[in-house]
């Protein structure tokens, strides 16, 4: 396992308690034990838009929603082979999160690249939830090794392997990095701010482009000339 230089390491049991979640600090490295479920736009649409019921007992079994599509295959004996496990970019699911957290009691959202800082302040932290990001992206083999068993899978036929809801029993499942805390801070946003401070000087001395082009402006009234 990688030695995180100066980074704190935490091992967390799922479902995570409010105390455990409150204790998470930005930039800490987290490993999980327990049950994690996957859900992304396909599942959100089924439940929140089409009104289909949640799998029975979901709220008691797990409070960690992974924005993930596993590399999985159905074996002839009816079991599932899980190869790699990698997250998908979470900010695309922003519009579903408030209602989803309310419906499921989810307290840990795991995915790729975080969500907007405003979502942490307005949606996640008021509901006692935090965001963990996968590392890399992604450590598909390390995470795949952490999945010990597929407990249940829902909407597999309707949504396909990538969009179905998978419930994974996991052990030492990680690494993840804490991106948000209950105060609504965001590690990605903080790091982005630091990077942004240095951007302007990179363009010093480069002459301006010959023509203005779409992509350099989002003002549609501007001319290309």
């Amino acid at each position: 396992m990688a030695e995180p230089k100066g980074l704190r390491q935490v091992r967390l049991k799922l479902p995570a308690s409010p105390q455990d979640i409150a204790a998470l600090q930005l930039g800490s490295v987290v490993y999980l034990d327990g049950v994690v479920y996957t859900a992304r736009e396909g599942v959100y649409e089924r439940v929140l838009v089409r009104g289909e019921p949640l799998p029975e007992g979901l709220c008691e079994i797990s409070n960690a929603n992974f924005h993930c599509s596993p590399a999985a295959a159905l074996e002839p004996d009816g079991s599932y082979a899980i190869g790699g496990v990698t997250a998908t970019a979470s900010f695309r699911f922003s519009k579903y999160m408030a209602e989803w957290l309310d419906r499921t009691g989810t307290k840990i959202v795991i995915g790729k690249a975080g969500m907007p800082r405003e979502d942490y302040q307005k949606v996640l932290s008021p509901r006692g939830a935090v965001y963990l990001t996968t590392v890399g992206y992604g450590t598909g083999a390390l995470l795949g090794r952490g999945v010990k068993r597929v407990r249940e899978v829902h909407w597999l036929e309707e949504l396909g392997i990538a969009q179905a809801m998978w419930m994974f029993e996991v052990e030492n499942f990680g690494p993840f990095i804490v991106d948000s805390d209950l105060a609504g801070n965001s590690l990605f946003a903080q790091q982005g701010d630091l990077v942004n401070e240095r951007i302007a000087r990179l363009y010093d001395g480069l002459k301006p482009p010959a023509l203005h082009r779409y992509g350099e402006t989002d003002d549609r009234k501007r001319e290309v000339m």
Binding site: A71, G84, V85, Y137, G138, G140, G144, R145
Partner: peptide
């Protein structure tokens, strides 16, 4: 990378 080669599993699930 090491885990992927040892376990013969994909290094990334995407």
């Amino acid at each position: 990378y090491e885990t992927a080669t040892e376990d013969r599993r994909p290094m990334c699930a995407d």
